[in-house]
């Protein structure tokens, strides 16, 4: 566990030196929000319509921005044989997975932290039930990242990794996105954590299932 924290710390340090990935993810997710906001321009006065559209837009922004980050997560290790170096580390292979997942989750949280205020402004929300929203986003992000990190490792050794990652990732995360969008919608309308306990349980189950499976098969995904 400590070792995976070391790997996560290494990733985050490298990321904060350049901020390359973080910047592009933030700007990308802001752009998604802005574009949706522009294209729904006339509807935004109608709070009924907005409350049906907005949760989906928010999660589209998170998913696409996350996909950008994930496609770089292992690809950045390819330079100078870093991936081989990581594999040679005297740690369990699953520690590499956990470390990578932790650093990806931290980066995603930062992106989401910046996106949500803009989202609230653009879609004219005053967010109540902040606690519920945080719980939904945390659980959803963990589920998304735990699959995404595994698939990022899976596709890194293939020729067409940028093409393959979204194709593999999107169908697998549908069961995570659906309850997340439903729960976000409910929170934004009347904002109470007890209304969404069903969705939260479902998200929690997905997180656990996907995290455990990924731990088990990561060794095979990253290769010999």
């Amino acid at each position: 566990m400590i070792r995976s924290l070391h790997i996560a710390a290494k990733d985050l340090k490298a990321e904060f030196r350049t901020k390359q990935m973080l910047n592009s993810m933030v700007i990308f997710s802001l752009l998604v929000i802005v574009i949706f906001s522009v294209s729904f321009g006339d509807l935004l006065g109608d709070s009924e319509t907005v409350s049906q559209l907005a949760p989906g837009v928010l999660w589209i922004a998170f998913t696409f921005a996350g996909m950008l980050g994930l496609s770089r997560s292992f690809a950045s290790e390819l330079e100078n044989g870093c991936l081989e170096g990581l594999k040679l580390c005297p740690v369990d292979r699953s520690a590499i997975y956990t470390g990578k997942a932790i650093s990806n989750v931290v980066i995603m949280f930062l992106v989401e932290l910046i996106t949500i205020p803009l989202f609230a402004v653009m879609f004219n929300y005053n967010i109540q039930g902040l606690l519920g929203l945080v719980v939904v986003i945390v659980l959803g992000t963990i589920g998304f990242i735990s699959v995404g990190t595994l698939l990022s490792a899976l596709t890194v050794n293939t020729g067409t990794r940028e093409l393959l990652l979204p194709i593999l990732l999107l169908p697998i995360i549908i069961p995570v996105i659906i309850p997340a969008v439903l729960a976000t919608g409910k929170i934004l309308v009347n904002g109470d954590i007890s209304d969404i306990s069903g969705e939260l349980r479902l998200l929690l189950v997905y997180d656990i299932i996907f995290f455990v499976i990924a731990q088990l098969v990561f060794e095979y995904a990253i290769g010999d």
Partner: peptide
Amino acid sequence: MRQAIEEPEKRARLSAVFGIVGFAS
């Protein structure tokens, strides 16, 4: 995915991983 990977051994291994993850749905 099976179509995208050329080497038979790698194709078998990676798609086995995906087959396991995909079954979770």
